[in-house]
Amino acid sequence: MTMSINIPGGLPRARVRSQTVSGIVAMIIGIGLLAALVAMPWWAGQGTIRSVVELCCYIAIAQMWNLLAGYGGLVSVGQQAFSGVAAYMMFALAQNMGVNPFVAVPLCLIAPAILAVPTYALLHRLDGPYFAIGTWVVAEVVRLLTTNFSYVNAGAGMSLRVMTQYSAHERAIGVTILCALMLLVTVGGTYWLLRSRYGLALTAMRDNPVSAASQGVNVSRLRFLLFVAGAVGTGLAGAIYFMAQLRITPDSAYGPQWATVAIFIVMIGGIGSIEGVLIGSFIYFFADRWFGEYGATYLVVLGVLTLLVALFARGGVWSLVNKLVDAPWFPTRRVLVSGGGQ
């Protein structure tokens, strides 16, 4: 996509390119993959569908963490608070209140949005590791409250028995459609945001928040909006993930593994890039499938790999790819192509 700019004074007209061939190809492939995802109940088995749903949730959660840390400078290790509270809200609406479970998924997003407001008000004055520790403390508090809340069966957890009224095929259709919408909201929404007029402000805030503020960017408001958006997106992924699992407990919903997975994916793939999230998600997904049986050794290897990337390739795998070929899948830059005509 190009845009012409008329320059007064007889100077050549400039053309600004905001789309690339690689971006168009990636968009076509992405639409095809979303269509294949929605059609999975008609061509894939239940095990494959469950694995793909899990991968989609990893992508969504990692992208929301990437939005917070990569652009807002908000390093959180407590995003599981939002995935857990949304999932529990969905279970309560569907199992205890009789709401259609597929309708309960969008309705439950009000819970992480509400939780994000006081959380940010409490923690926004903290920086760096203090903010990160604060988010973990909030997640632990929410976990403890849930463990002692009898309405959601306390520490014993809940089963989504209401889903038995639907056949396995019907459940698969509903979950895959929700997954496709989740990817459109989290990945597509982030791409739209970065290409909008707010994208420049986010990029400036990522590079230097002090300088961005001096140029008129309302850093505090943008960080607050990013925090709430990240909470809602993470909550959506949590609700869909546990809907597919049909069971939830406080330890599984609020476990630190959610933050660990998001951090690993973003650091390995490349912080501050949508492409990096996709690459990192696939790396983690297949590594977990192939080497997860090795337990503690496998986790140590993942930790060491993350440390090495942070030390020697801070841009992750995507930065290494960029050094070989400049072909962004989600182009957000505006490039002056040439002048031409009067």
Rank of each mutant, 00 (worst) to 15 (best):
A180K: 03
S76R: 11
V175I: 15
G189K: 15
G230M: 03
W290M: 10
L194W: 12
G216S: 10
S211G: 11
A62N: 08
G269I: 11
V304D: 04
V105D: 09
S214F: 10
M163C: 04
F291T: 09
A244T: 15
Y241A: 04
P106V: 13
P328V: 03
D127M: 05
W329F: 15
M163R: 09
G316V: 09
D207M: 08
A26V: 11
I28P: 01
S338H: 14
T119P: 01
T203E: 12
Y58A: 01
Y298H: 15
T48V: 14
L181K: 11
A113K: 09
L336P: 03
K323T: 07
G339R: 03
A253T: 00
N100W: 14
G84T: 05
Y298E: 06
L33M: 15
M267W: 13
G316T: 14
F91P: 02
A229L: 15
N148R: 15
G303V: 02
L183R: 00
A81C: 08
P129C: 02
S319P: 03
I268G: 04
Y294H: 14
L226T: 05
G199Q: 06
Y284P: 01
V185S: 07
F91S: 05
N208A: 08
R314M: 07
R17A: 14
G339A: 06
C108F: 12
T135P: 03
R161V: 06
V105E: 10
G340H: 13
L305K: 02
S338Y: 14
G134I: 06
A244Q: 15
L37D: 11
R223Q: 11
A310P: 01
V187Q: 00
F149K: 00
A204S: 12
N218Q: 11
S4N: 11
A44R: 13
C108H: 07
Y191V: 06
L193I: 13
V228T: 09
E170P: 01
V77R: 01
L122N: 04
C56F: 08
G134R: 00
I271Y: 00
V210R: 15
H169M: 09
V25K: 03
G238V: 03
Q95I: 00
L183N: 04
R13K: 15
F131L: 13
D251R: 07
L33V: 10
T297A: 14
P118F: 07
G199H: 07
L236F: 15
F242P: 01
G73R: 04
A111H: 09
D207P: 03
M205C: 06
L193P: 06
V261R: 10
G316Y: 08
M163K: 12
V162I: 14
L305R: 03
M243W: 04
A237N: 05
R143A: 04
L302C: 09
V21M: 12
A172N: 13
G134D: 07
R206E: 07
P328E: 10
T249L: 07
R206C: 03
L109P: 00
I283T: 12
S22F: 14
Y298S: 07
R125H: 12
W258Y: 14
L302F: 10
A156Y: 14
V53N: 11
A81N: 00
T119S: 14
V187I: 15
L246E: 13
V77S: 02
R206P: 01
I61S: 05
T260D: 06
F102V: 01
A35M: 08
V277R: 01
Y254R: 00
